[in-house]
Computed example of a mutant assay.
Amino acid sequence: MEIFKELIAIWGAGLSTLLALIKIWELWSSRRRIEVSYNFVGLPEIGNDIIIRNLSDKPMTVTYWELLFCEKKAFKWVPYRNENPADGTSDIYIAGHSSIKLNFSGPKYFAWGHKALGGKRLYLNLYIAGKRKPVKKLVYEG
């Protein structure tokens, strides 16, 4: 009878461990994943595009964003210029497994490349509904 109780305890411990691992895997695979890429063009009338991709299956809302031009000062990347959305811009909804483009044409156009940025970096801060801190993504390394 003692062996039977030990076998049931071992079986219960193994089963609960397996179920905990499955739950951790589900949480890990359904986490919010964001990718940022770019499509830069040399013509101000066409403009530069920054593409935000939602790689997870959950939709997300970007409440605010900042495009930061950063330079290195004493082991830290410090912004020296930034671009923000136009006044009155509302939340940006990104469905699961989809993307949006932010276009910078006309007066919002910026030069890019090694000559223009000269070792500086371009970051995008995304303020997402439900998160306290912004998500900072490297867009371009000049």
Rank of each mutant, 00 (worst) to 15 (best):
Y123M: 04
A86H: 09
R132V: 09
A129D: 15
I24T: 14
K120V: 03
N48S: 04
V36F: 02
W25D: 10
S30F: 03
V139S: 04
E26L: 11
K76E: 10
A20Q: 08
N54W: 01
N54Y: 01
F40A: 10
S16D: 11
L122V: 05
E66F: 02
G47V: 05
K133H: 11
I22H: 02
I3S: 12
E66W: 03
I34G: 02
L68G: 01
A13G: 12
D87G: 07
I51T: 10
T63N: 04
W11D: 10
E45T: 14
N54C: 05
S99G: 02
K72Q: 12
A74G: 05
K120H: 12
G14V: 07
L19H: 02
A20R: 00
V78G: 03
G119Y: 06
F75D: 12
K23C: 08
I128A: 01
I128P: 00
V36H: 01
I52F: 00
V139D: 06
F104K: 01
R31D: 12
L126T: 04
L138W: 07
W11C: 15
S30K: 13
L102F: 06
G142R: 01
V139T: 06
V78E: 15
E45W: 10
N54V: 03
F40S: 07
W28Q: 09
E6V: 10
A74M: 11
D91C: 04
G118C: 09
E141S: 14
K136H: 04
L43R: 12
A20C: 13
P134A: 06
K108D: 14
S30Y: 03
L21W: 10
L18N: 09
F4L: 13
L19P: 04
I92G: 03
G14L: 13
W112F: 15
F40M: 12
E35D: 14
S30I: 07
L68F: 04
T17C: 12
N125G: 00
N54I: 03
Y93F: 13
E66L: 07
V135K: 00
W25H: 14
R81S: 14
L124Y: 01
T63F: 00
G119Q: 10
Y109D: 07
L15Q: 09
I24E: 07
I94C: 05
W25I: 13
F104S: 01
C70S: 11
D49W: 06
S30D: 13
W77M: 06
W11F: 15
K76N: 09
R32P: 00
